[in-house]
């Protein structure tokens, strides 16, 4: 199957000013630093990592909302640029997004049905008003919103209902790709399950591919066909969710997986606790960027950047794992 979306060596660096000394100094913040992945038609790639690892920047690069410093994104064989011309707008009909905060993504002064109908107005102005209303009503029904909610304003709906409005609007033009950036992080557990099930059903029915971004490994595992773990702007491990989360290879993924408390794991104290905070993306450590917190780091990790090495669909960027010499890591399993 050919890839619907292909990202190659994507980089996004920001020039920042650091207040230091008398005049400060210029530095480069490497938000995304060489990320490659592909998403096939109808499949979902999950992207996990802690705050500041570059997940959301990757989402913006994929959609062409911000220009990449280096690297390319191809959507259905066409290059996605950050030049917002007719070609980009045509492409954007087929790529939609959902963000964490639905209230921020909706206009507070318009009834929700008007907002759901807006994509038709923008991308298909010839459509008759009657058809627009009918299709919007169908969309509302498909995301589980009652017809009597159509004329309500965003503040009159609950968080879960607002997120359903955003989903309905994103799916209005039947996109091929949906970029979901923390779509359920602001929702309560019971509502989170409703929205995740809804996305799952809609995906089955309409067959969209998705880039699903979350800091919550449990949610990502639930939704993804493949997952990629990011640390400081790079993918450190990727593969099938069962593989990556059940048998994590990279020491960072291991710590991340072991750190999740769940009711089923209670009482089993096998948490790997990492020392310290993630380094600032302005001062990324040399070599493997994880070596400052890695429990099994060796001298070589400090000098050389590890490459993502794939074996059997499971890719890991770690010198020790890839050299087959991670005795401490194996013992920890």
């Amino acid at each position: 199957m050919s890839a619907l979306l292909q990202a190659k060596d994507l980089k996004r660096h920001y020039e920042v000013h650091i207040p230091e000394g008398l005049f400060g100094r210029k530095a480069s913040l490497k938000a995304v630093d060489g990320v490659s992945f592909s998403i096939e038609k109808g499949r979902t790639l999950g992207l996990v990592g802690e705050s500041g690892c570059g997940k959301s920047t990757t989402a913006k690069l994929v959609l062409g909302l911000i220009p990449a410093t280096a690297g390319t994104v191809e959507f259905a064989g066409t290059r996605v640029t950050a030049r917002h011309d007719a070609q980009w707008r045509a492409m954007r009909r087929r790529m939609q997004m959902i963000y964490q905060d639905p209230l921020g993504a909706l206009d507070r002064r318009l009834p929700v049905i008007t907002q759901i109908a807006e994509p038709f107005e923008i991308h298909n102005p010839e459509m008759l008003a009657a058809e627009r209303t009918e299709r919007s009503a169908l969309l509302m029904e498909s995301v589980g919103l009652r017809p009597d909610m159509a004329m309500r304003y965003p503040h009159e709906l609950s968080g879960g209902q607002r997120q359903r409005v955003v989903i309905a609007r994103a799916l209005a033009l039947e996109p091929d790709l949906l970029v979901c950036d923390e779509p359920v992080s602001a929702l309560d557990v019971s509502i989170q399950a409703q929205v995740l099930n809804l996305l799952d059903d809609l995906r089955e029915r309409t067959g969209f591919a998705a880039l699903f971004i979350s800091h919550d490994l449990k949610v990502v595992r639930q939704m993804s066909d493949r997952v990629a773990v990011m640390y400081l702007g790079r993918i450190v491990e990727s593969g099938l969710p069962e593989e990556v989360f059940r048998r994590p290879q990279h020491p960072y993924t291991k710590a991340l997986v072991s750190a999740i408390p769940t009711p089923a794991r209670r009482g089993k104290r096998e948490r790997i606790v990492l020392e310290g905070d993630p380094p600032s993306p302005v001062d990324v450590p040399s070599g493997c960027s994880f070596h400052t917190r890695c429990p099994i780091a060796q001298a070589s990790c400090r000098n050389e950047v590890p490459q993502l090495v794939t074996s059997g669909g499971h890719a890991v960027a770690c010198h020790l794992v890839n050299a087959g010499a991670a005795p401490a890591a194996q013992a920890a399993e």
């Binding site: 557990v189 019971s190 509502i191 989170q192 399950a193 409703q194 995740l196 099930n197 799952d200 490994l217 449990k218 949610v219 595992r221 639930q222 969710p241 069962e242 989360f245 059940r246 997986v257 999740i260 769940t262 009711p263 089923a264 794991r265």
Partner: peptide, 16 residues
């Protein structure tokens, strides 16, 4: 309603 990290993947049971 809570997704798992271990064990097989199952459909979540949501509270309506």
């Amino acid at each position: 309603a809570l997704p798992d990290i271990d064990g097989p993947r199952r459909r979540l049971e949501s509270i309506p």
